[in-house]
Amino acid sequence: MRLLHFADLHLDTPFHGVGPRHARTRRAALRTTLRRIVALAREQRVDALLCGGDLYEHERFSPDTAAFLRDAFEEAAVPVHLAPGRHDRYGPRSPYRQVAWSSNVHVFAEDHLVAETLADGVTLWGAAHRGAAEGDGFLEDFAVDREGVHLALFHGSELTGLAVQEGGRTPHAAFTADQVERAGLHHAFLGHFHVPRDAERHTYPGNPDPLTFGEGGPRGAVLHTVHDDGRVDRVRYDVAASRVHDVAVELDGVADADRVRERVAAAVADLEGVVRVTLGGEVGPDADLRPGDLTRCAPHLEALGVRLGSVRPAVDFAALAGESTVRGRFVRDVRADGRLDDDTRRRVLVTGLRALDGRTAELAVL
């Protein structure tokens, strides 16, 4: 049996911080990604397409998205099983209840695992999130009640991966890896963690299209071949319609804004899609760093964002402290202030020196 598994697409997510036009482009890309997943299901002639939740975001769902999902899954022409998650939970006003799904679509609607037969001797157990917060995980006190190969589809936090996946946040519908085996399940197809993970008895596919910067790993859709003894082989497919990059640009030795633009342009020249640049290094004291002015360095990109990282002005404060001037007295006083940490002291010094030079327009850049 061949099953195609994905999760955490998050249709209609707002993409805060990138501007309205670009946010619309990114949301359109999420739809393209789902079309690619559906096309892959047809191409690979899978026996079923599985979604482990967070297919869309309930608070922002529109009638247009409902029509899009209905048509997309009908075009899959294979059985589609959907397990509502945290952001697309099943409820009275849920699109899962309101959409007139085609006959090949099945939505798990119960808040506990219920059985669906995929083939003779193969059972898929699925469950839905029905509230904003969940208590025990779906595997708590659960055990299969029949013979054969048993698979599960749900949205939740596997506890051994919580620190890596969610930075120590409160777990959501938590379970442990050994609960999968103890329940009599051969494999669990999951959603919720955005970092891909292939464990012996469970799989997180990761979000199939980038939702933020810094996402890495072979995420996408996972083709599972389920053997007669319940073993699962996996092949990952890149189905993303978006390309999102994080790039660090070091500015050591740069003395003016033109050189900054040149370095940023060179760093992103071979990239496509959306790029976020983080500036670092020591720059000349007169370099005018305005991140907003650098976003036009690469017109070939869909969008370029620039932020200041560990940028430090290359200023000889010791030499300035030796001056018999107001500037020298200022530097001496700040350097002697024991209440300041090193980073704050440097910022105060640079800001004050620019103010003394009458360069008030540059103060906000710091």
Rank of each mutant, 00 (worst) to 15 (best):
E250N: 12
R36S: 15
G52E: 13
V326R: 12
E140R: 14
D256A: 11
R263I: 04
A266I: 06
T351I: 11
V149R: 03
V348R: 04
F15P: 06
D246E: 15
R201Q: 14
L3P: 00
R93P: 05
T351V: 08
H245Y: 11
V315I: 12
E59L: 11
D198G: 15
V222W: 09
P218R: 12
R290D: 01
L153N: 04
V244W: 13
L49E: 10
D64N: 14
D252E: 10
P84M: 04
R234D: 12
G230S: 09
V239C: 12
Y90L: 01
R261I: 03
T13V: 10
A303K: 06
L139G: 00
T295I: 13
R93A: 12
V277R: 01
G52A: 10
E43Q: 15
L366R: 02
F61A: 06
G309I: 11
R339N: 12
S94D: 07
R36Q: 15
E262I: 09
R243Q: 15
P196Y: 05
G253P: 03
R201Y: 08
A188G: 05
T25P: 00
H10N: 08
F138D: 00
R93F: 09
H150N: 09
A100K: 09
R339E: 07
L223H: 04
V222Y: 00
V235R: 14
E75P: 00
A23I: 03
R347F: 02
P205L: 05
Y204A: 10
L49K: 10
F175T: 02
N207S: 15
L159Y: 02
G309F: 00
G338Y: 09
P20N: 10
N104M: 06
L50I: 07
H150Y: 01
H224S: 10
D145L: 07
D120I: 05
R327L: 14
A115C: 04
P218C: 08
A266N: 14
L340Y: 01
Q165G: 13
E57T: 12
D233G: 14
Y204W: 10
H187N: 11
V78N: 02
V195G: 13
R339L: 03
F138L: 08
E57C: 09
S102V: 07
V311N: 04
A41E: 06
L49C: 09
A287L: 01
A66M: 09
F189M: 08
R201W: 07
E323S: 04
L153I: 03
F175H: 05
E282V: 00
R21W: 11
F15W: 07
T278L: 08
D178I: 00
L279C: 03
L3K: 02
Y56N: 08
T176W: 01
P14F: 03
L50G: 05
V80H: 05
L34A: 13
A257E: 13
R236L: 13
T160D: 14
E43W: 14
A67P: 01
A298V: 12
L40I: 05
L30Y: 12
D343T: 06
V311T: 04
V232K: 06
P299M: 13
V249A: 00
R276W: 13
Q179M: 11
D120F: 00
G19L: 10
A174N: 05
A100H: 14
H224G: 02
H81W: 06
D120R: 02
